[in-house]
Simulated scan of single mutants.
Amino acid sequence: MKTIPGYDGGPLDDGGALLGAAAFWPAHLGPHLMDPMEDVADLFGVPFEDVEATYRRLTDHAAWPVFTFDTGRDARLAVVYRNLDEDEGVDYLLVPDGAEAITVATDEGGAFGRGLTWDEVAALAARQPEPIIGARLLLLLAPMIVHFEAPDSDVVARLAEALRTAGVPGPAQPIAERILHPDDYSDDDEPAAFVRGDTLADRILAPVRSASSR
């Protein structure tokens, strides 16, 4: 696995082969749902033993799985399981061509950093060359979405479609609803409006605006 410019990581390992396994999705999304792994495995319709084994693979200190995607904007997106002893986390990076990596978000038991918006993630997924690649990207990034501009029904429908495309055997709509709302909250807990700046990351992630929306 190639190094990521400016990212002082450990033994990076291409995790692409894991994306085809049904057990990958409950293993990756389970911490976001905040339920016991047995319950997550049951929800996704995957044997608990498979989910447990996949999670051990994802969090193995000997090899840090990396998942990379093209952004369509002279940059790659990299999701890295940073399995550093006593400093574990999942890093969401942008790697512009010829420049060092930019940390967009980090998952360390919660989202930290700039985070992503639903519009940004949906746009990144739409830029992928095949529907299954877009579906995988959407689900990989889901835990770091900090602001949703679309109605819940639209988000759930898109997530459910991605779950089916990715080959998740469990019921897509209930899983999608749990991804969108991993815990109960009141309207007062809704995040404030996301304000996009003018950094390199903002320009790479910004969705293309149609003429009618300008």
Rank of each mutant, 00 (worst) to 15 (best):
A160Y: 14
A166V: 14
T165R: 08
A142K: 09
P169A: 10
R164S: 06
V146Y: 07
V168P: 00
D154G: 01
A150R: 15
A166W: 14
P151M: 06
E161V: 09
L163W: 15
D154L: 15
V146Q: 09
A157M: 09
F148T: 06
P151D: 07
V156A: 13
D154M: 06
P143K: 02
L163Q: 09
M144G: 04
L159M: 12
A150D: 06
V156R: 13
P151V: 00
V146N: 02
G167P: 02
F148E: 01
A142S: 15
A150W: 11
S153F: 12
H147V: 08
V146M: 01
A142E: 13
V155S: 02
S153A: 03
V146A: 12
A162N: 03
D154P: 10
A172P: 00
S153W: 12
R164E: 07
P151I: 03
D152M: 07
G170N: 01
L163S: 07
L163D: 07
G167M: 07
L141D: 08
R164G: 01
M144S: 11
E149F: 14
L141I: 09
A166P: 04
E161R: 10
G170Y: 02
V155R: 09
V155M: 06
Q173V: 13
R164C: 11
E149A: 15
D154Q: 13
A162E: 08
P151C: 03
R164H: 07
V156F: 12
E161Y: 04
V146I: 12
F148M: 01
T165L: 14
E149W: 12
P169S: 04
V155N: 06
T165A: 11
Q173Y: 03
